[in-house]
Each structure stands twice: as structure tokens, then as C-alpha cells.
Design a protein around this nucleic acid. Structure first.
Lengths: 342, 342
DNA sequence: GTGAAAGCGCTAACAT
DNA sequence: ATGTTAGCGCTTTCAC
């Protein structure tokens, strides 16, 4: 029987193994392992022979087997909302860089803001035995991760806090940022200010709303019911919300947009109107400088980096209790937030 | 000795195994495996007992072991340039969606436009035995992947062709898109048009330049040497190039920007100038509509989706010879490309 | 319907 | 300096 047909189909398309390399080089299995892993205790001559066998067979170590034996996968999982969102791209990249510095690969998954999908993804990553997990929560109950964390999966939550479990968290200061932004509008003479945010079950949305309310209260301003709108960030919904706030008996003269997607739609709607409306948006967006959009910027890359660094500190054995880190936001005035009421 | 101390440290933080579940449920190992994998041939009663043991122990199947045995990881790798780039986010997300539909996870890696890093990443993914690999090439020689492809790793190249190997490729029509864009400028009366693109070793950069030259030649226009600038997309470099083309004895009246990053910087530079300069950019960018930037749009998500679908068709056993798919681009006029020369 | 035994490719522990 | 053995946790095979 031909040599190539010797093996069962499932063996990764008949890849050579260390055993094959050992046979070819006329050495023992462990010697091959030593060469492959750069361990000491091999004479230059044997090493050369092994290396030749490796090259001629096209051998590449099977990390699946290695992982099974070592118990560490050198990979971390990142569950986020949507990789296509310009906010999460840089965050993910920052996590990847830290992982890379620690010799680990990154497995990404998008929850699409769905709690079940978040859980499914996170648990699939745990089944793969990722060393650590970074989660941008879609759901609000993370007790399903308790057994995993107890079993040793380092876990850090980013952008939003964990629900019902005690864990490391890295956040931006949504409350403070929104409060500053709204205070900024008030300082420029606005009294009727609208808030358009994401769905109320999203932590950052309610925190930013809280900041808005605090700023209004600080200034002794009442908030009319119709000035607040939380909901999906689909352009239609946001456009309707903007339209409603600008019409009616009590129209706003300024708007605070609760995140990047809301800001973008709001800018589009305002551009098609003649009466100027002041605007401050949470999250910086590309080209906002040219459009003169005043924003509360958060540093997505810093969020990712901070979370990843905490994760690897845990993996390196740090035993401190879980902490919550809050990163500051920055108000960037560019014009849209510095106009007086019409 | 306490039960919890029974196991060696490396066993994934002492997670229960199927063996443990079997012991607890008083059944054989294989029966647990059957329950866990939903295989038939287990009485409802046994199944219940096994499920109870699973729940009480917090058992979760170790996919590393499963992978080793089955030879398939149900994961695909994606090597791209930079996850933080707004062009690659949607592409990556599209790949992820297709992978998800096939029950596979996605491992991402950024090459940072470095050929060595691309190779390192791609081979690391192969060592993990990803079932398939999608590569946005940074390098121009992919012969290093030949043994992997021969060993059964399905591989598809996106955005740029593979170098020196025969493989599936999915591209946007860079040549045609640039040619259309430049022809559009010529149709609006421009005769002196500049081209600013990415580094010449990047395939899309040279293809777009080729399209530019073709459009100029079609119109019987000479291309002055100083109207063409290829190089890194760093803002400084691009800004210098724009400045040079707009000054001197033979200034251009219109510019073609070779990709999203070049367009962004060019728009910034032009915004600070008084004389209007026409502009068409390759790649659509967020808020370009509000800034009135005319672009040649390519569909990043379609690139990713098409590549991923091809990949999974291969994994499902398709044996056709490698093909190259070219996706059309679309000219979106928004104002900046429709102004006559000053 | 159920289980015992073999083995996936590697590394750890222990020879030689 | 090199090799042998056991076993990581699972699936496959085959026997009961």
C-alpha cells in the first residue's frame, strides 16, 4: 500500500508529525520536540539533521496537541458588539497588540448587541479554553461565567460593567463626560437641550443620560419629558427623535447625542435644516474636525489596552481583588457646541 | 488527600472532564460523550442523570481535546492589515458572519502591512490548525503557504492577489474604479490631475495608478512626473504631496486620492486652502456625504463575504481550480468631483 | 443502549 | 545528549 494512503483521513490532511520527523532524521521523538521548541541539550549536528527532516517533510507543530498537553492555549477571546463599528475596531486592535506582546492570538466575536449571542460566544471561547476573555457586555447577567472564572479563565469587562458578578471592569466616564458636554452647552446659553441616546438597557446610555440630567439640574433647568429619547440607533429612529425635539411647542435649541451613531445621524438631519441647532456628541468620529462637530471623546484604544493589560496581569498570577478602572473623557470644542441659541 | 488537590496544576485549573462526569453519573465515558454531543442511543433516564452530573460539576467540553481527535477546529483565520482601519472592520465582520453561519469562530490578526508579520501570523494560525485562512496580503511572496495549502488549509486572498502561488482571490476593481474616477474629473474639464496613492509595493496602489494613467491617456493627456506620488499614507507625507502638486509651475486643478486614508488627509489639506481643487477619492468614508466628497466606493463587506463563502465552499469539498473574482466599484458623485477647474 | 480500549500529536517526567 | 513512557480529554471503534 502506498505510503500516502497509510493514514486515516482525519489526520489534518496527512500532515507529518514529530514521529515522522523523528523517523526521517533517525532520532527519538523527544529530540525533535527539543529542536522544534528550541530547548537546549541537542548537539548542533543532530539539530541540523532534525531541521533537514522538518524542512523536507514540511512539518509544522500541531498546536492543538500542544495546547491539550500544556493546558494553555496562548489565545484570548474578545466578545464585542460589532467589529464593523468604528469604535470597536481600534479597541480590538489595541487588545490584539497587547496579546501579541504576550505571544497570544486573539479570537473575536460580535454579539450584535444580543445577550444570548454574547453568552453563546463567550462560552464557545471558554470551551476552546482561551486563557482569558474580554467582554463588552450585551447582556446584564453574567453569572453564566462564574464557573468559567472559577475554573481559571481570566475575565475583564470593558466599556460596560459586568452584571451580577464581581469582576474586573474598564470603563469610560460616561456620566462625567455627558455632564461636561451638557454643561458646555448650558454655558453657551442653551436652556432647552435634548438628549438622544441608545437603548436604556445599555449601561453607557443610561449613564450618559444621568450625566445630562445632572448637568441640567446643576444649572437649575427643568427637563421636559419630550427632550429625552432613548432607543435603537437606527437612522430612522434617531431622525424621528431629532425631528420631534425640534418641533412642537417647546423645541430644543441644542442636542446632546449619546454615541457615535446617534451623532452621525443627528448631524445629517441638522444639515438639512435651516435653523441652527447646537450639538455635542459622545464619541469622536472621523472627519468631525472638518464638520466642526464638538464631541466628548473617549479613547477606544486605551480602553482595549487597559483591559488587555489587566487581563495579562491576571494571567501572570496577580491575585488582587477585582477593580473598576474609569478612564477620563475629553471635550473637544469644534464649533457645533459653541453656538448660542437661535 | 482532598479531592480538589488530586490533579496536576496544568489541567485547566482543575476543570471536570467527561471522566469525572461519568463517575458522578455512574455511567461510562462514552455515554457522557453521547449526551454532550446529542448523539442518539441514550435512554431519557440516563440522559437526565448525565445532565445532572454535568450541571452540578459545571462541566464544559474541552474543545482542544475534541479538535485534536477530530482534526477540525471549526475556526478560520483572517490576516488583515489593521483591524482599526474603517475599511477592514466591515470586511472582518462580514467574514465573521459567514463563519458563524458555518459554526466556526474567527481568529483575527493584523499584519501592520509587514510581510514578515503576515507570514508569522498566517503560520501561527496554521499551527493552530485553522480549517481555513483568509489573507489580505502584506507581502508579495506567498510560497510559504504552499505546504499548508497542500496539507488541506483552504486559503483565499482578499483585496490583493496572492504572490507567486495559484490561489483563490477576491478583489475590487481598482484599475477600473480609478479609471472611472479620473475620467469623471476629465469630463468636468480638468486637464492637470494629480494622483496620490499608497506605497508602490501594494497591489491596489499600483492598479489604481494604472487606472489613472489609462484615463489620462484615453483623453490624450500627458502626465507630468510631479503629478504622481506614491508612498506611506501618513498625514505628513500626504500633506506634503498635496502641497507640492498645488504649487510650482504646473499646479494640478484636481486630485485623485488612492485610498481612504489619503482622501481624509487630502480633504483636510484642501479645507485649509482658498482655491478650490476638485477631488475624487477611492473608498467611501463616513460622513463623506456631508462633506460632499465624490468617491469610488468599494464594498468592503461584500469582499469579506465573497471570500468567506468561497472558503467554506472549499471546506465543503469543492474541487474547482482557483478563481479570481473581481467586484465592481461605484462612483458616487457628491460635489467635490464635479467642480470645474479654477 | 452502553462501555472498554485505542489513539489523536504533543510535552513532562524519568530513564539511559 | 538522547530516548522511552505515560497521559492531556476527547472521539472512534468495536464488543457486549
Amino acid at each position: 500500500m502506498a505510503d500516502t494512503a497509510r493514514r486515516p483521513e482525519h489526520r489534518y490532511g496527512n500532515r507529518p508529525t514529530m514521529k515522522d520527523v523523528a523517523a526521517r532524521a533517525g532520532v527519538g521523538l523527544k529530540t525533535v520536540s527539543r529542536v522544534v521548541n528550541g530547548e537546549p541539550g541537542v548537539t548542533p549536528d543532530t539539530e541540523r539533521r532534525v531541521q533537514e527532516a522538518i524542512d523536507s517533510l514540511g512539518f509544522r507543530r500541531n498546536d492543538s496537541a500542544r495546547v491539550l498537553r500544556k493546558g494553555r492555549t496562548a489565545s484570548v477571546g474578545l466578545v464585542l458588539e460589532d467589529l464593523a463599528d468604528p469604535f470597536y475596531g481600534p479597541l480590538s486592535r489595541a487588545v490584539e497588540e497587547v496579546a501579541r506582546a504576550h505571544g497570544a492570538l486573539l479570537i473575536n466575536g460580535s454579539s450584535a448587541e444580543d445577550a444570548d449571542r454574547e453568552q453563546e460566544l463567550a462560552l464557545a471561547l471558554c470551551a476552546r479554553r482561551v486563557d482569558g476573555l474580554i467582554v463588552i457586555p450585551a447582556g446584564s447577567d453574567h453569572r453564566y461565567l462564574e464557573p468559567e472564572i472559577r475554573a481559571g479563565v481570566a475575565t475583564v469587562f470593558v466599556d460596560r460593567p459586568a452584571g451580577l458578578i464581581d469582576a474586573d471592569v474598564v470603563l469610560s466616564d460616561s456620566y462625567g463626560g455627558a455632564r461636561n458636554g451638557v454643561a458646555h452647552l448650558i454655558a453657551h446659553g442653551h436652556r432647552r437641550i435634548g438628549f438622544i441616546g441608545d437603548r436604556p438597557r445599555i449601561h453607557t446610555a443610561t449613564e450618559r443620560l444621568r450625566g445630562y440630567r445632572a448637568a441640567m439640574e446643576d444649572a437649575g433647568l427643568e427637563v421636559a419629558e419630550e427632550w429625552v429619547s432613548l432607543g435603537p440607533t437606527e437612522p430612522d429612529r434617531v431622525a424621528r427623535a431629532v425631528g420631534a425635539m425640534l418641533s412642537g411647542p417647546n423645541p430644543v435649541t441644542a442636542l446632546f447625542a449619546g454615541n457615535n451613531r446617534v451623532t452621525v445621524t443627528t448631524v445629517r438631519v441638522l444639515a438639512s435644516r435651516e435653523t441652527p441647532v447646537a450639538l455635542v456628541g459622545f464619541d469622536d468620529i472621523e472627519l468631525a474636525d472638518l464638520l466642526g462637530i464638538t464631541v466628548i471623546a473617549q479613547d477606544a484604544a486605551a480602553l482595549g489596552r487597559t483591559a488587555a493589560e489587566r487581563l495579562f496581569r491576571r494571567l501572570d498570577g496577580a491575585e488582587e481583588p477585582p477593580t473598576t478602572v474609569v478612564l477620563e473623557t475629553k471635550l473637544i470644542p469644534r464649533g457645533s457646541g459653541e453656538t448660542a441659541p437661535a
